[in-house]
Amino acid sequence: MTIPDSLVTDPSLRECLELSSKLRILCQQLLSDLQAHGELSEAALIERARQQKLLYAYLTQLKVLHRAAFMSAREAKQTTTEARQEVDRLHLQLQNLYYEQRHLRGEITACKDFPHSYTSLPLISEEEFLQLHPEHAEDDPHALMIARLHNEKAVREDLERQRKELSAKKQTLILENKKRKDDLASLDEQLKKFIEVWKSPLSGGRKGLIWYQFSRRDLYKRPSRRNIEIQNDVVCSH
């Protein structure tokens, strides 16, 4: 069975095939001579010896070529194994990249769908913010959101400061009102004492008339007690 030359392209293998073909032809000639009966002449014996030497030379050369082809096949196999391992390594690396890509896409989707707290803040609209701060008109969405959050923080801090000031004023007014209520309560007590003293006799059998004078200007001040007139042996009654 002959192998087409188009299937073998390696020079060493082609040389091996050519040598094998020559060796086959030589063996066939020797077999034909051995099968022929009769005595051979001296020239025929010399020719047979030459053919045998040539046969041994072809065999030796074929062994060398066979060994070279075997070593070349081993090297090719080793190279193929290394290339396959490299391909497997690259394929595994590619699969890892695909896995990492899917993981990162999932994380990106989760981050986009995450209900951030700033999305629920009652911020002013973007159009109103840009009207108040036109210098942020060219900002990207991320920088624009940061600017809106900073603006909201500043506004809330200012409102908190105003709330504290108003709360302090409220406490001051509460204290003032409490003081005035206490003054009014004290005034009521003094009026009661005035009525009791005015109705009761003084010590030593004398009766006195005690007058209290109140001014509209000093309504919330403690009233001054003034002894207007003391008469002996005079009884005043209503």
Rank of each mutant, 00 (worst) to 15 (best):
T79F: 00
N232R: 13
P4R: 06
L219I: 06
L209W: 08
G38V: 01
R74L: 09
L26M: 06
P122H: 03
L159E: 13
Q85S: 09
E100K: 08
Y99S: 15
E189R: 12
Q213W: 07
I3A: 04
A49Q: 15
N96C: 11
H136A: 04
V8H: 08
Q29H: 02
Q95K: 15
E135G: 02
L132W: 00
T9Q: 15
L166R: 13
V235I: 14
Q61C: 11
L175Q: 11
D182G: 01
A43H: 10
R74S: 02
Q101F: 08
G205M: 14
P122T: 01
L45V: 10
R148P: 03
P122R: 06
E42Y: 05
A73I: 05
G208E: 14
P223L: 05
L7A: 09
D139T: 02
H66L: 15
S6I: 10
D233P: 04
D233Y: 01
A185N: 13
K207G: 12
G204V: 14
L17C: 03
H142C: 07
S32L: 05
D33G: 01
V8R: 11
R156A: 10
L202R: 04
E18I: 07
H116D: 07
D140I: 09
R161F: 00
D218K: 00
L65H: 03
A36N: 03
L59N: 03
R225G: 07
S215E: 13
C111N: 05
C111S: 06
A49F: 06
T119A: 11
R148K: 15
L90Y: 01
L173E: 06
K221R: 03
R89G: 12
R216V: 05
I228T: 12
L31K: 04
L45Y: 11
S6E: 15
L62Q: 10
L13A: 05
H150G: 06
K112G: 01
S6A: 15
E86H: 07
S224W: 01
L209A: 15
N96H: 13
L23A: 04
I25K: 02
G205R: 15
T119Y: 02
A168K: 14
I230V: 12
G205Q: 15
S125W: 00
L92T: 10
L31T: 01
A49S: 15
L17M: 12
F70M: 13
L175R: 10
Y98M: 15
L94I: 06
S12P: 01
D10G: 02
S6L: 09
A73H: 04
A73Q: 03
D158S: 08
L191K: 03
G204P: 06
I25P: 02
T81M: 10
D113E: 11
K192M: 08
K181Y: 08
P223N: 05
A68S: 11
S224I: 09
C16E: 06
H150I: 12
S12F: 02
R67D: 07
A43C: 07
L132C: 10
V234C: 09
F129I: 09
R222N: 09
E82N: 06
L45F: 13
L149W: 01
R67K: 11
R89V: 07
S41H: 11
L166Y: 06
N151P: 00
I108L: 12
A185Q: 14
L26Y: 01
E82K: 08
R217G: 04
S117E: 12
V197R: 07
M71S: 07
R217T: 05
L92H: 12
P141T: 03
E100C: 07
H37I: 08
I146E: 14
H150S: 14
S21H: 08
A68W: 00
L65K: 06
M1D: 13
N96W: 03
